[in-house]
Amino acid sequence: GIQEIVAMSPELDTYSITKRVKEVLTDNNLGQRLFGESILGLTQGSVSDLLSRPKPWHKLSLKGREPFVRMQLWLNDPHNVEKLRDMKK
């Protein structure tokens, strides 16, 4: 599951990941809330907090790293936007 992926993950640049996620969401007119609930399993508040103030990787616990790994996996998925759009319906 995701825990193994997080444990094996190389250090991620949390700042550039969140910046990229925000760009993709904005460009495709997708909400942070939808993204947070569907992709990260987080509430709106947690998501906007994460996206606006990402902590550096080395300061995060494994649990804290999980959303960033999920974001990275989502960014790597060529169908990420379509999938999210489908969830919106």
Rank of each mutant, 00 (worst) to 15 (best):
N80L: 06
K89S: 08
S46V: 15
P78K: 07
Q44P: 15
R33V: 14
Q72H: 09
G36C: 14
E23H: 12
L60W: 03
T14A: 01
V47M: 09
L12V: 07
Q32V: 14
R33P: 09
I5F: 12
G36W: 03
E82S: 11
L40R: 01
K55H: 07
D77M: 04
S9A: 10
S16Y: 15
N28H: 12
P78W: 03
W57T: 03
L25C: 00
R85F: 10
R53Q: 08
L62R: 10
S16N: 15
K55E: 15
L34A: 09
G45H: 13
N29F: 08
R65A: 01
L60V: 01
G41P: 05
L51C: 00
L34T: 09
S9T: 14
D49L: 10
R70V: 09
L12R: 04
T43V: 06
L75D: 00
T43A: 11
F68A: 00
L30P: 02
S61M: 05
L73E: 14
K55Y: 07
S46G: 11
E82N: 07
S16A: 14
T26Q: 13
V81A: 07
P67L: 12
E66A: 06
S9N: 10
R53C: 15
S52T: 13
K22D: 04
P78S: 08
N28M: 04
R33T: 12
K55G: 07
Q32P: 07
V81L: 08
L40N: 02
E37A: 08
Q44A: 15
L50W: 04
D13Y: 02
F68H: 01
T18N: 03
I2Y: 10
W74Q: 01
T14P: 04
M8S: 14
R65E: 00
L30G: 01
W74C: 00
S9Q: 09
M8E: 13
K83N: 12
L42I: 14
E4V: 04
I17L: 15
G1R: 08
K83A: 08
T18D: 01
M71E: 02
N29V: 03
I39T: 03
G41W: 00
K59M: 15
R70C: 05
K89E: 10
L50T: 06
I39C: 05
L25K: 02
V21F: 01
S48P: 12
S48D: 15
E66K: 06
G31R: 04
D77A: 04
P56H: 15
S16H: 09
G36I: 12
R53N: 12
V47Q: 04
E11G: 10
V47K: 04
G41N: 15
Q32A: 11
L73T: 12
A7I: 08
R33F: 11
E23S: 11
R33A: 14
E82G: 10
F68K: 00
G45C: 09
E82V: 11
E37F: 02
V6E: 09
S61H: 07
K19M: 12
K22V: 11
L12H: 04
Y15C: 14
R20I: 04
S48I: 15
E11H: 10
T43L: 03
T26I: 12
N29Q: 13
G1Q: 12
S61C: 08
S46K: 14
H58G: 09
T43M: 06
S52E: 13
L73D: 08
R70F: 00
I17A: 02
E4G: 11
G41A: 04
N80M: 05
K89D: 13
L50A: 04
R65V: 00
R33Q: 13
L30Q: 02
S38I: 11
L40V: 05
L51Q: 01
S16P: 01
K63R: 14
L25A: 01
W57D: 00
A7Q: 12
K22R: 09
K89N: 08
L12W: 02
G41R: 07
L62K: 15
F68S: 00
F68C: 01
S38N: 15
Q44Y: 12
V24F: 03
L42E: 14
V47R: 02
L40E: 00
S46N: 10
P56R: 05
S9Y: 10
K88Q: 14
D27I: 15
A7F: 05
L73P: 03
